[in-house]
């Protein structure tokens, strides 16, 4: 009932809009940037600089160094129990840790783990952001949310220059009804006298392996 009366009220409110007008009649000027001419090196440099602005540590490594770097990162934090998505390759894992595949782990189990390792769908140089879309090596949303430490693998080919490119790349994920999370640094608040505090509810530490 409310639906019909709300729609009716809207139509009355819009009586100045010609009845024949459709959304197409409002032209949206899109003169903003959607592409940049950059080299891969420039792009990766900007990405690194921008994500470091959020106090994220970035390690630039080669593909055959993934496992060694995972080991080093986890050791540095004395992390033991680490959650990984079910499709995470064994070959990247290191000895001496307890890796738990997310076979429907409870929120409690995720909360009690020391950290999580995921990949990402796309990363944005302009804003230093990474986006997860429940795609390859990304897992479901809760696994990158509850553990206090998030180690994220970003492949050089996944980095785009601009925000518009990222949304374009994510379009298939949305159309396939995947949830999407943009992460730009660890969680933060400025609610206490405008002092930025890293880490409120999400992972308090975000670390990136940039694979070139």
């Amino acid at each position: 009932m409310s639906k019909e009366s709300m729609l009716a009220a809207i139509r009355i409110a819009l009586k100045d809009v010609p009845e024949t007008e459709t959304p197409k009649d409002t032209v949206v000027p899109r003169a903003y940037l959607t592409r940049l001419e950059t080299s891969l090196e420039e792009r990766l440099e900007l990405f690194t600089e921008r994500i470091e602005d959020y106090k994220v540590v970035v390690h630039r490594i080669k593909e055959n160094e993934i496992s060694a770097n995972i080991e080093a990162c986890l050791q540095a934090r004395a992390a033991k129990t680490i959650v990984i998505p079910t499709d995470f390759p064994d070959t990247w894992l290191a000895q001496g840790f307890s890796f738990v595949q997310d076979e429907n782990l409870s929120h409690q189990q995720l909360d009690e783990s020391d950290g999580v390792i995921t990949g990402c769908e796309v990363a944005v140089a302009q804003t230093g952001s990474i986006a997860l879309a429940a795609g390859k090596y990304q897992g479901r949303r809760a696994i990158s949310l509850l553990p206090d430490y998030h180690l994220c693998l970003v492949f050089a080919s996944q980095v785009v220059d601009l925000v518009p490119e990222a949304f374009e790349k994510l379009e298939p994920s949305v159309k396939n009804r995947k949830p999407i999370t943009f992460i730009s640094g660890p969680s933060a608040t400025s609610d206490i006298e405008l002092n930025r505090v890293e880490g409120v509810h999400g992972p308090r530490t975000l670390e990136v392996l940039l694979i070139v």
Binding site: Q126, G128, S129, R140, R177, T181, G202
Partner: peptide
């Protein structure tokens, strides 16, 4: 691509705020 550029910069004055969640209905198992 428009609003996710203008909102964070206008709001918290960051290039991007820490988290943006986008969900599309119910995601099975997630």
């Amino acid at each position: 691509e428009v609003f996710m550029q203008t909102l964070p910069r206008s709001s918290t004055a960051e290039r991007m705020n820490p988290y943006n969640s986008f969900w599309t209905g119910v995601h099975e198992g997630d």
